[in-house]
Design a protein around this nucleic acid. Structure first.
Lengths: 221, 221
DNA sequence: CACCTAATCAATTTATCTGTTGAATTCTTG
DNA sequence: CAAGAATTCAACAGATAAATTGATTAGGTG
């Protein structure tokens, strides 16, 4: 085989990994799988596609090495292949956020105006957690909370935000986090809390980024 | 616009960035541009494609926000849009290297057997450079060396490796680096040096990764 | 073993991507 | 301003990808 051919094949292989992420629905799937294992059916519900279509997309991710699957009884569970995949997904979002013209507009269309949302980064949150002067809300579905959360966080599933507003003592700051920087749950919580007169902040990114940064993680209830 | 539509559009935008990398020739172009600005013609020569085709690929990269272009006299120069793009490219290679079955085989077809090549990582090289007990070869084209190199490195263009073998004093280790982990130049140098009886090592990755890690960089001759 | 559920496969239509060719632009130089 | 070089554009043919539909496989359960 010629050098040129060998080089082409090698770079085609790199490109194949990118290709597996080069579809909006698969990108959503990666974002979902970053939260933990999912069955095909659950994944399909998350991205609002048919099971057949979702299955095909998941197969594509698996074929590219980005996801792996295992059978558990009746179902097949998919997960991301490793931390490097999460890092890749994070890098991809970062490039888009910085260099894609109009991404801020698309994000605003989906997330609403964030200019009035106070944000806090991982380091700052870790520091303030040590001082213990805040309430930390994990605004994700309970299964994801159980699979792993920031120590000290309380689980407030998205649907329960309103019911839990009064649990927060007056004068205490609340930090909310969810799945990642483009997840709406924490935004909703912060808006509701702010409207109720609390000072509320959003963690800049989400739980997967916290975990990947090597910060402490609690598992279970 | 519905929430579902807005979310789709946002993730389609992420996917569009991946799409721009989802072609082997464009992946090669990113690898080349990570070394510095290139004219369309030079870039075409590097990837062995026609100028028209290369121009189109570069336009795709630019449209996706991954590259930018500027006119300089007669020519149009392309460069990567920023460090985050390099980080993305690095993350992509890392995922491929770890999770793509058969990548090692493709790499071996292009690079040859690396099992007998000693490698050294950035930290180790930085430490040993401080001790000043080695010769450091920058095995890239001279323009790339001038644009930036590891302080203390001498420029040994790929075509001159053989001529420079005798410059190395006996008993002194040589470290060679080039464009990145999948670049052949440093491998060639290490093999030639080893055959000549020197102890030679390859830097695990290349100059762009060194620079991106925040390590010191020298510019010019 | 029949029946049910979850997931995958196969086939189809529509849309997009690749590389090629030749023409059109844009800038520099004489 | 004419000529030339570098780049981009436009149009095309062949290949590949996406979502849908319907059939099939694999694993549990009565």
């Amino acid at each position: 085989m010629s050098d040129r051919q060998a080089k082409s094949s090698l770079y085609d292989a790199f490109a194949a990994v990118a290709q597996s992420l080069a579809n909006g629905r698969r990108a959503e799937l990666v974002d979902v799988l970053a939260q933990g294992e999912r069955s095909v059916e659950d994944a399909a519900a998350e991205i609002g596609q048919s099971v057949a279509n979702t299955s095909q997309h998941l197969r594509v991710l698996a074929r590219a090495g980005v996801a792996t699957s295992r059978r558990l009884g009746n179902r097949v569970l998919y997960r991301l292949a490793g931390d490097r995949v999460e890092a890749l997904w994070e890098a991809l979002r970062a490039v888009a956020a910085e260099h894609v013209a109009g991404l801020d507009r698309l994000a605003a269309d989906y997330l609403g105006d964030r200019s009035d949302l106070e944000q806090v980064d991982r380091q700052e949150l870790a520091r303030r957690l040590a001082d213990d002067d805040l309430v930390l809300w994990d605004v994700r579905p309970p299964t994801e909370f159980v699979a792993g959360h920031v120590p000290g966080a309380v689980s407030v599933p998205p649907a329960e935000i309103r019911r839990r507003l009064d649990d927060v003592p007056d004068g205490t700051d609340v930090v909310a986090y969810c799945r990642g920087p483009f997840c709406v749950f924490a935004d909703d919580a912060v808006r509701e809390l702010t409207a109720r007169g609390h000072r509320a902040l959003r963690l800049e990114d989400g739980f997967p980024e916290w975990r990947r940064a090597g910060l402490p993680v609690a598992v279970g209830e």
